[in-house]
Structures are given as C-alpha cells and as structure tokens.
C-alpha cells in the first residue's frame, strides 16, 4: 500500500540530494530503493530518468565516474 512507503521518488527529493553533493546514477538509485518507495524497478528507472531530464543537472567526473549535481 502507498502508506507503507517511507520514501517518495519526486523531483523535489532528487533536487535536494543533487544540491547537497554530486551523485552517480547508482547513488541516486540507492536513495530510492524499490523496497522503500513501493515502485517497481522499471518504474524507478523511468521516473528517475524523467526527473533527471527535467532537472538537467550539471555533470562531472569524479574518480572516473560521472556524477550529477545542481547548484542553488
């Protein structure tokens, strides 16, 4: 049920994380684990992709991994 999920995958939540520090796609997926949001893996990937396309965050490589970040 929706009430069992304690984390919501929203544009606001993603923005807050990316303002705080640069994150890889894997870092973001860890923040919105399916068992915590109640979404399926496919939904999570699709929703996160849509949100990232809208936010259009800056990108930089740290330790050879692409990280997204936003500035306020």
């Amino acid at each position: 049920t929706p009430s069992s999920s304690d984390v919501q995958l929203t544009e606001d939540a993603v923005r807050r994380y990316l303002i705080r520090k640069p994150m890889t796609t894997k870092d973001l997926l860890k923040k919105f684990q399916t068992k915590r949001t109640g979404l399926s893996s496919e939904q999570t990937v699709n929703v996160l992709a849509q949100i990232l396309k809208r936010l259009n965050p800056e990108r930089k490589n740290i330790n050879d991994k692409m990280h997204f970040y936003l500035t306020e």
């Binding site: 890889t24 796609t25 973001l28 997926l29 860890k30 893996s41 999570t44 990937v45 992709a49 396309k53």
Partner: peptide, 20 residues
C-alpha cells in the same frame, strides 16, 4: 541485490544517454 542495482543503473544511464 547489488546486481539488480547495477542493472537499474545501466538502464537509467541508457535512458539518459539518448537525451545527453
């Protein structure tokens, strides 16, 4: 599992690569 996380990350990056 970490392999599922890897698969999801790969799928997400593939989606975003079309856009970037």
């Amino acid at each position: 599992s970490s392999s599922e996380a890897d698969e999801m990350a790969a799928a997400l990056e593939a989606e975003l690569n079309d856009f970037m």
